[in-house]
Simulated assay, not measured.
Amino acid sequence: MTIYTTLLGEKFQQLHPKLQHRYALPLDQEFFATGVMSQIKNGGRLLSPFYCLTSKANFLFPESGQEIPFSIANRCAMNQDGEVEVAWERTFHFQNAERKFNARMTVDLEKKLVKDFLGDIPFFYSDLHFDVTKEGFLIITSGVQKVMLGKAGFTLPKILRGRVTVLEGYDDQKDVYTIHVSIYNAVLGRVMMYAGEFKESVH
C-alpha cells in the first residue's frame, strides 16, 4: 500500500472506484492525465509580487483564464529519507505562458495527515487532511502551514494561512475526473481557484 491507501484505511474503499485507481498509485508507478480547466482565478493585483516569487518555484502563478488545457502527473517513489513520496506536477497551458504547480507529498501516520511540500524549491509546507464524502468524492483540507528555510519551519499564524479545499470526484456520465480547488485567505480573500475535468492518458 502507498501513502493514500495507508492514510485512509477502510475509508479508501468508499471512494469511487476510479478514484481508488487514481490514488492507489503503487511504488514506482505513474498516473498521467490531460484535461481542461473550465476556470482559473487568482487573487488579483495585490498579490502580484507574491505570484511572481512563487511562479519561479513552480508553485502559484499570476494568470487567470477559462478553458485552459492542462496535464497532471503523479509519480510514487522512495525519497532520499527512505519515505514513500508522491510527486505532483500540474501543468497549465495558457495562451502566453506555461505554468506549473508542483508538490511532493509524504504521510505522517502518527498525526494521520499528509505532509505537502509545495514548489520545486520547497519553501512552503502544509498539513493536508484527507477524507471521503458520502458520494465517494475525495475531500482534502489544509491545516498547519509553514514557511521553510532549509529543514527549519516557521509556523504561520492562522491569519496568514491559505485555507485550502480540494474536492475531486468522478462523473460517470461524462467518464471524466472532476476537480475543484480553492485557496482562500481570511484577510486577502481568494488566493487561487481552479475547476475542471480530466481523463487518464498515456504519457
Rank of each mutant, 00 (worst) to 15 (best):
L15K: 01
V181M: 10
H16I: 01
G82H: 06
K112R: 12
L160F: 15
P122T: 11
L47K: 02
T155D: 10
K151H: 14
V181Y: 15
R161V: 05
E67Q: 15
I179R: 01
D131S: 15
A195C: 06
F101C: 05
N102R: 12
R161L: 07
K199W: 07
V191H: 01
L149A: 10
N58P: 03
L113R: 14
A73V: 11
M78Y: 15
T141I: 11
V164W: 04
F124G: 00
F70P: 01
A195V: 05
E30I: 06
L128P: 04
S182K: 11
I68D: 01
S38D: 14
K56L: 13
A33S: 15
Q145N: 05
G35T: 01
F61I: 02
N79L: 06
K100I: 03
Q173M: 03
R99K: 12
K115T: 10
W88I: 14
G65I: 05
Q29H: 11
N96Y: 13
A24Q: 11
A24C: 07
Q95L: 08
E135H: 06
R99D: 04
L118V: 14
K111G: 05
S201F: 09
V144L: 09
E197S: 13
R163I: 12
V114I: 14
R75S: 12
T141K: 15
I40P: 00
K134Y: 03
L149G: 07
I121D: 09
S182C: 12
H93W: 13
F32N: 07
A87P: 00
F59L: 11
E83P: 01
C52N: 07
Q173A: 09
I139D: 02
R45K: 07
V84T: 15
D172P: 03
